[in-house]
Design a binder for these strands. Structure first.
Length: 946
RNA sequence: GCCAGAGUGGCGGAAUUGGCAGACGCGCUGGAUUCAAAAUCCAGUGUCCUUAAGGACGUGUGGGUUCGAGUCCCACCUCUGGUACCA
């Protein structure tokens, strides 16, 4: 079989690598190490998607490239296997989720092996492995055993938490509760989506418009006891320590914005009887600002304390603890109605109606601490209880939200910042008249002694002043919230926590951690997975023997919440370093040798949460001395999405007439309608022969008046444009799939799939094959052009230039251009009737990271008896990459008028002289005055003439 | 709204510091081979004008800097992704 047949050689080499342990990684690196990591997949029932191999091929190329350069490479893979779909499948079919999970993992494993990735399969793991869950639980216990020392900005053992004297005086129980309140893992009530009809708690993504995604049943918001992780304690470090990471600025910014650090001030507004304000403020001068606000004040957070004089009213969130206290009898009914309505709204409902602000007056007033004037206190749901203090001072002249609200309810608008005369965009007079809102910086007006100050100076001064009189202080806030870390689900890691029971068998509020030696806490056997119809977690159905253990003669109830899917993915990169260790989550010596991850590649959808959570866990482990690096992932790259093939879509009205695409728009549900009539139109999928490009638009071939849409869509089952890697491997081979995914364009770009593109790289591999094998022979023999002779000078130059370019491109993850250079190499040598063996071998070593199977096969046919996986990467001689002569363009005016052939190292003066001597140039220069001559040696000559 | 990224041939995309725009691939056209086709090989292929030689134009739009701009600056348009009142 002299023809290139991937179906035969790919399984052959996959077997070879497996049998010879080619990619088995040593326990410890020798020489330089490189840790190349993929974001491990969730093994869905759908199997691998063409999006997966994009990142996986990129990292595989890097791994194979660097092995040839002598690095010890750690390149593992595993499975993020807990998750909702498996549990849903279990409920439907009453089979344990572990069964379907293992089946799906088997499919993924087969598909990954079929693509020839050089993973060390001995290190494979799944987050659902009992031996893995054990250490996930162990890390949870570390979090449970840690408190955050603000002054040291560091997590420390709970035993070192200083206990205040008054707590000590209260006794042991009080001390334990005090400790529990300070742990990084703590309990709190949080709202869940309880669906009575389904009898289960739903995840946010399972709720659409306040109803269950499945069945459309109503969903209630219900407070439930939950586990929280105190990620907010690490907010500052999570932000500042991004600095040294080699991540794209976009991802860093995304994380920064998510953390959302802001600086401003907390200010107390007196809400007691008006005639007691003076007395109160005098008292504050003595006592200073209390740590927690008393009931006679409303504490607000603002990033613009400089606009304090413009605060004309206040707003508190409907959930604010002072709502009742501040509501006057006349307003009680209205306030109650408003707060109830707000409570029943889902988060999304609250934000969907952004256009119109709603609110209700409490009847009470607060005193503006700087002006002494009373201002009304309102309740409105545009103020969120979860941010800042849940209360704001409203400055309608300088905050768009407050401005909208003030207009809605006729509240006064007092400008206190002059945008200044040069400020464009903001109509100054409109702002000064209180008719327009200006949120920028400027100069203070109507602000008493502060008039004339610039915003930034004002901010600083007023913070000092408020502090001095005990009415406020500088403050920092974050958008980041603590991490809701429990789920009311079966298919997740159980918490290694026991609740102490009293004599009546009820939890008494005291907790006990399972000792590490007794981990893992395994999931119990359930007879069925159907919801039990109560909001409590499904593990409440567990057998008594599991649910109620007895320790030291005391009865406990196990924690029945389970951990979210994020848990397992927060530390898998550490376990890969030492996956079989049953004494420790990772051997510290190995950890120090392999960490950090040098290159981490995955989808942008994990840019915020997964990376933030993993970094948080890593920092806690670092503080507690379990890992050696502050950050886990040194370099991060997000691969772009792969879209389906480009599609042409035309539109027809109800009567079957074509309608031009620019006359079609989408309604709120995304359905196409005619722009003019608002009537629905039909999408018609067109073949490539039905549409053509006319100018800047694509039109029907039959009617150029009718424009059609031309674009690539996200791959989706419903659209039917999903490309299945199995089919590509069957029709073209794994090497072609790998090569095509890399040749499509830059790794980070979004790119449309194209079958003819796959065909194109396949014919490149066919050409590579014929370059070395004689296709006309029946036997597998070398092409007669392959000879054991030294390359000619020209051939040598092609070889060295290719090495230079491919090496450079791989160092920069520019795979598409590296492939283009190797194509040029092949095009050149295909035309050569003599092809020196050495040159061919260089090509195979360079191409092998991209298309490993065909290269191994050809390498073997060239007479080698060992895999080329560790063959040295070819080096180039710079002298051999340069031409002796170069062609340099000569411009007169703005036009290229001649090209001259000169020695590559031609000096400036000589180059100009040769250019002047060129007949066409000389003729052109004769009648002109030369103003300037620009000479760039090796590049160009330009005569600037009049 | 806001934030980020991107607009280059018929298509995917190339283009070190500003220095020959369109590498490489797809598609298309012509030729060789073939009884024919597929496959393969060779040549051509930005647009327009011209019989030709040659010329003009050309990197979303408009301006600017420069001897020189796809690349730098300003304004705008379009698309893609993300986000949702965070005081």
């Amino acid at each position: 079989m002299p023809r290139y047949n991937p179906a035969e050689i790919e399984p052959k080499w996959q077997r070879y690598w497996e049998e010879n342990g080619t990619f088995r990684t040593p326990e410890m690196p020798s020489g330089d190490k490189l840790y190349v990591l993929d974001m491990f997949p969730y093994p869905s029932g759908e199997g691998l998607h063409v999006g997966h191999p994009e990142g996986y091929t990129a990292t595989d190329i890097v791994a194979r490239f660097q092995r040839k350069r002598g690095k010890t490479v750690l390149h593992p893979i595993g499975f993020d296997a807990f998750g909702l779909p498996a549990e849903e499948h279990a409920i439907r079919t009453n089979t344990p989720p572990r069964e379907s999970t293992e089946k799906n993992i088997a499919t993924f494993r087969r598909q990954l092996k079929m693509l020839g990735f050089s993973y060390d399969w001995d290190r494979e793991l799944a987050t659902t492995d009992v031996a893995y869950v054990r250490w996930t639980q162990w890390i949870f216990l570390v979090l449970f055993d840690t408190w955050f020392d603000l002054s040291q900005q560091k997590g420390r053992p709970i035993a070192e938490l200083p206990i205040p004297d008054d707590v000590v005086a209260e006794g042991d129980r009080a001390i334990r509760i005090y400790q529990d309140e300070h742990r990084l893992a703590y309990q709190a009530d949080a709202l869940v989506n309880w669906c009575p009809a389904l009898g289960t708690v739903l995840a946010n993504e399972e709720v659409v418009d306040g109803r269950s995604e499945v069945g459309g049943h109503p969903v209630q918001r219900l407070p439930l006891r939950q586990w929280m992780l105190r990620i907010t304690a690490y907010a500052d470090r999570l932000e500042s320590e991004l600095e040294d990471l080699d991540w794209s600025s976009g991802i860093k910014k995304l994380q920064k914005d998510w953390i959302g650090r802001s600086t401003g001030a907390e200010v107390d507004f007196f809400v007691g009887p008006r005639d007691q304000f003076q007395e109160w403020s005098n008292r504050r001068k003595q006592t200073g600002l209390p740590r927690k606000p008393n009931y006679d004040v409303l504490r607000v957070y603002t990033i613009r304390p400089d606009t304090l004089f413009g605060a004309t009213y206040m707003v508190i969130a409907p959930e604010h603890p002072l709502v009742q206290r501040l509501t006057t009898p006349e307003q009680t009914l209205a306030v109650q109605a408003y707060c109830t309505a707000a409570a029943n709204k889902s988060d999304r409902e609250r934000t969907e109606l952004v256009k119109k602000k709603t609110g209700v007056f409490t009847g009470s007033y607060a005193i503006n601490p700087v002006s002494g004037k009373p201002i009304p206190i309102w309740i409105a749901d545009y103020v969120l209880i979860s941010y800042g203090t849940g209360a704001i001072m409203a400055v309608p002249a300088h905050d768009t939200r407050d401005f909208e609200f003030a207009q809605q309810f006729g509240l006064p608008i007092v400008p206190v910042v002059d945008p200044g005369p040069q400020r464009e965009g903001a109509d100054r007079q409109q702002v000064l008249d209180g008719n327009s809102c200006f949120a920028g910086e400027g100069t203070a007006i109507h602000s008493g002694p502060y008039d004339g100050l610039a915003t930034s100076q004002f901010k600083q001064k007023i913070a000092e002043q408020l502090d001095a009189v005990g009415m406020g202080r500088a403050a920092v806030n974050y958008k980041l919230r603590d991490w809701l870390f429990s789920r009311q689900r079966f298919w997740g890691e159980p918490f290694p926590i026991l609740h102490e029971l009293d004599d009546q068998g009820n939890p008494n509020g005291l907790l006990r951690a399972v000792v590490p030696e007794q981990l893992p806490v395994n999931l119990p056997h359930l007879d069925d997975y159907k919801p039990h119809g109560r909001p409590e977690p499904p593990l409440m159905k567990a057998p008594e023997s599991w649910l109620y253990p007895t320790l030291d003669g005391r009865r406990y109830m196990r924690e029945t919440n389970t951990m979210p899917q994020w848990a397992g993915s927060c530390w898998y990169y550490l376990r890969f370093i030492d996956p079989k260790n049953d004494a420790c989550f990772v051997d510290p010596k190995k950890e120090a040798a392999w960490m950090p991850v040098d290159l981490y590649v995955g989808g942008a959808e994990h840019a915020v949460l997964h990376l933030l959570y993993a970094r948080f866990w890593h920092k806690v482990l670092y503080d507690r001395g379990h890992v050696s690096t502050k950050e886990p992932f040194h370099r991060l790259v997000n691969q772009g999405m792969i879209l389906g093939e480009v599609e042409y879509t035309g539109y027809q009205t109800e009567d079957g007439q074509w309608i031009s695409a620019q006359l079609v728009r989408r309604d709120v549900d995304g359905n196409p309608i005619a722009r003019q009539t608002g009537k629905p139109v039909t999408e018609v999928k067109l073949g490539t022969d039905q549409a053509t490009k006319r100018g800047d638009s694509v039109v029907l071939v039959d009617n150029a008046e009718i424009r059609v849409d031309s674009r690539a869509h996200k791959m989706s089952k419903s659209r039917g444009n999903v490309v299945n890697p199995d089919a590509i491997v069957q029709d073209y081979g794994a090497d072609s799939l790998r090569l095509y995914e890399m040749f499509m364009g830059p790794l980070e770009a979004t790119k449309p799939w194209s079958m003819s593109g796959v065909n194109g790289v396949r014919s490149f591999l066919d050409r590579v094959w014929r370059l070395i094998i004689n296709p006309r022979d029946d036997e597998m023999i070398l092409n007669e052009a392959i000879q054991d002779i030294e390359p000619t000078e020209e051939q040598l130059r092609v070889v060295h230039r290719t090495i230079e370019a491919v090496t450079h491109d791989l160092d920069h993850l520019e795979f598409n251009t590296a492939i283009a250079r190797m194509m040029e190499f092949v095009n050149y040598f295909t035309k050569q009737s003599v092809r020196p063996r050495k040159a061919m071998e260089s090509l195979l070593v360079m191409l092998a990271p991209f298309a490993p199977h065909i290269c191994e096969e050809l390498w073997q046919i060239l007479g080698h008896d060992r895999s080329l996986a560790y063959e040295d990467w070819p080096v180039f001689d710079e002298a051999l990459t340069r031409d002796e002569t170069v062609v340099v363009p000569v411009q007169v005016g703005k036009k290229v008028r001649a090209r001259i052939k000169v020695p590559a190292d031609c000096e400036r003066e000589q180059l100009e002289a040769i250019a002047r001597a060129e007949p066409t140039i000389a003729a052109l220069l004769e009648s002109k005055e030369i103003l300037k001559v620009i000479v760039v040696p090796g590049r160009m000559v330009n005569f600037v003439v009049k």
